[in-house]
Structures are given as structure tokens and as C-alpha cells.
Design a protein around this nucleic acid. Structure first.
Lengths: 200, 200
DNA sequence: ACCTGGCTGGACTGCACGGTCCAGCGATGT
DNA sequence: ACATCGCTGGACCGTGCAGTCCAGCCAGGT
């Protein structure tokens, strides 16, 4: 639960907090980011943090996860909604590469949060899983349309194929974080498209 | 740096600590596991922890990372050393599936540590990256032999191809952690082998 | 001018955790 | 029997952090 600000000033402050928190959490992880860090980075005070996020850090992390999900989905548009042709998949791949290259730090904000919170915090985990499933759902939807148009080998399961591509993508993101390079993501996306080609 | 125990009893205690710490860290993450947790799970005392790991938690985490690396490499034997035939790659895939299915918790111990520490702790990060590179190196070596035997398309880069397979694998592991199911790993490995087939 | 209420600053509290310290215990060798 | 030394138990300390509390500030309305 978060408190929605009333005035324009309040909206600006809240947004400033979430955006700074998103950056810090991407850089240091949720556990590695203290409320004082966020306070310092935003020129705010403790009371403001709890004013806008009554549930404390937990609420703030939820807000960050939601923001990052929107950001990453937005970065994949318009391809994400039409992943039913070879050109769309290639455009999608390029959009992802461009997005993550422009990001201030290596790695996938959602994936990192998931890896960090899945094991400890069931409530957050559910929200993060939902974000992941929504994301993968776009891939599956496109593949289902391709299967309908008989662009895929008969008997291909769009759900499993989407998981293959999704896994290859997220492995690229994870290793991008490890190796601090864009190369693993390029490789992961390549592997994902190989899996797609394999089913065509 | 760790203190090597002298007596048999000491060796047993140290090993008990590392193994319990490995389980707890896999389950809750390094930051989510306190020394008191480990102390409680092993019926030891603070002084023993610092007796065997003078550098404190940091040393212990290093030891856990080393243990988990050995475990996961061991699980891939004997295939890991002969990844130069189609049969070996399939045996390798099956061995990995069996290993992670038998594990007490979902996810990749090394990958999780990497995701957690890469951003904050450069010292640990270097060690974890080394482990990752060693692992990927086995794949690359096999692929290089395949390229030498002209089993791969001319011009194929074993390094990049190994990264494709490695990324697909690790994406499967990461999502396995998120979705708490073996299915993503199966999908990731499938995608990796698709990439291999694509280069054959 | 005054009031209301959204917003802000910052001191304060309680607690969890990493790390220190020292007083023993117990097996092994002489 | 005694001394040595690896090993063990657990009290203790300092710090960093999430979360609380309250005294203001500053519009906009009347």
C-alpha cells in the first residue's frame, strides 16, 4: 500500500523517491540499499519516505519493481505486441540490446530483485513472479499467433518455447551483470532466436 | 584466508560449518544469512566461526562459493571434460537436470551469489567471476575441439557459442529460482542445445 | 488574518548483526 | 601427573538500520 500524493509538489517528491530508489537498488540490490541512502540521494527526510510509503521499505521496493517492469516492457514496444513475425523478433532483440546498453548499470532490475527476494520474502516474490509472467506472456502470445498461422512446426508448444526464449534472455541478463559486459546478453538473445528458428 | 584445522575433529567441524552455511546461503542468500543462523544450524559458537574463518563472514562466503563450484562441476562429470560430441552434450544436459532436481532448493548457488555480490563487493565478485569463467571454459574447450574436428560450421567462434549455451543454461537456473520449478531449466538447456545445433 | 491539511526536517528508539575477548575443555605427548 | 595446544562456549560491544514521533513549514481557502 502506498499513499497517493495530492498536490503537484507531492507527486514530484514521490516520483523522485521512487526513481532514485530504483537506481540505487539496481546498483546495490534491495538489501544493500538503506533508507538513509535513498534519503541522501533525494534530499528528503525519513518522514517523507514513510509519508508516501506507509509500509516502509517493503512498499518502496514494490513501487520500484512496478516502475522497472513498466520501463522494460515499454522499451520493448512496439515489437512486444506483435511478436508473430521474424522481423518483429529481430526488432525486439535490437530494442532490448539498446535498452540495456543505455541503462546506468548492468543487469536486469526485475531479475535481480527476483533472485534476491524470491527466497526470503514470499509477498514480494508473488509480485515479482507476476511481473515475470506478464512479460513472458507477451512472448507466448506472439508464438501462439505464429502457431495459428502455421509458421511453427506442428506440435510446438508456445508456452514451452516462450520459456526457452525467456530463459535464454534472462541468462544473458544475469551474466551481463556478472561479467559487466553486453556480450552475454547478445549471446543469450542469439540462443533464444536459435530456439525459435529450431521450431520454425 | 581460512585457518586449516589440524585435528580430525577440527576438520569435521569446519566442514560442518561450510556445508550448513552453503545450504542456508542457497536458501536465503548471503546477506539474508546471519552468523547466528549458521551458528544455530551447526551447534557451534561464534568463536569457532572466527577460529576457522579469521576474516569472518567474508571468508566463509568465499569457502561456500568454492564448495558450490566444486559440487556443480563434479555433478557434470564425466561429460564436462568431453563436450565434443552430440552424445556428451546430451549426457551433460541430463546430468545437470538430475543435479539441480536433487538439490535442496531451487536455483544456482553460484549464480545467486554472483547476482547478489557482483554489484557490491568487488573482491568476492572477482572470485565468483573466476568460477564462472572456469565453468564456461569447459564448454568452450569442448566446442573448440568440435570446431577442430570440423563438426561445427566454419567460422563459428567457440567462445561466443559457449557463451550462448552458458547464458541459456543460467537463464534456466535463474528462472528456476523464480518459478520454483525445474521446467525453466529444461527450457534453458533446450535453447542452449538449439544454439549448438544451429552451429553444426 | 487565520485556519486547515498536505508536506517536511530531523532527533530518537529498538534491534539485529558482525566482530571481539577470554575463560575454559579435552586429547595427545612426555 | 602434567603441560601443551587445538578447540569450544558464550558474554559482550559498536554500529548501522528500519521505523517512530512530533514540531514545524507553506500553500489555498474563507
Amino acid at each position: 500500500m502506498t499513499t497517493t500524493p495530492i498536490t503537484e509538489k507531492g507527486i514530484a517528491t514521490r516520483s523522485r523517491i521512487v526513481r532514485a530508489a530504483a537506481d540505487l537498488i539496481l546498483e546495490r540490490g534491495a538489501r544493500g540499499t538503506s533508507l538513509d541512502d535513498i534519503r541522501g540521494a533525494t534530499n528528503t527526510s525519513k518522514s517523507q519516505l514513510f509519508h508516501y510509503f506507509p509500509g516502509g521499505k517493503s512498499d518502496l521496493v514494490d513501487a520500484v519493481a512496478a516502475l522497472q517492469t513498466e520501463r522494460v516492457l515499454e522499451a520493448q514496444r512496439p515489437f512486444l505486441d506483435h511478436l508473430d513475425s521474424w522481423e518483429s523478433w529481430e526488432g525486439w532483440r535490437d530494442a532490448l540490446l539498446a535498452h540495456y546498453e543505455a541503462q546506468p548499470h548492468w543487469g536486469c532490475p526485475i531479475g535481480a530483485l527476483s533472485a534476491e527476494l524470491a527466497r526470503t520474502d514470499p509477498d514480494h516474490a508473488a509480485a515479482v513472479i507476476a511481473h515475470m509472467e506478464r512479460w513472458r506472456g507477451y512472448l507466448e502470445a506472439g508464438l501462439a499467433r505464429m502457431a495459428g498461422a502455421e509458421l511453427l512446426r506442428p506440435g510446438t508448444d508456445p508456452g514451452f518455447l516462450s520459456m526457452k526464449i525467456f530463459a535464454a534472455l534472462h541468462g544473458g541478463l544475469a551474466l551481463m551483470n556478472t561479467f559487466e559486459s553486453l556480450e552475454p546478453l547478445r549471446a543469450g538473445l542469439d540462443a533464444g532466436l536459435s530456439a525459435l528458428r529450431d521450431a520454425a
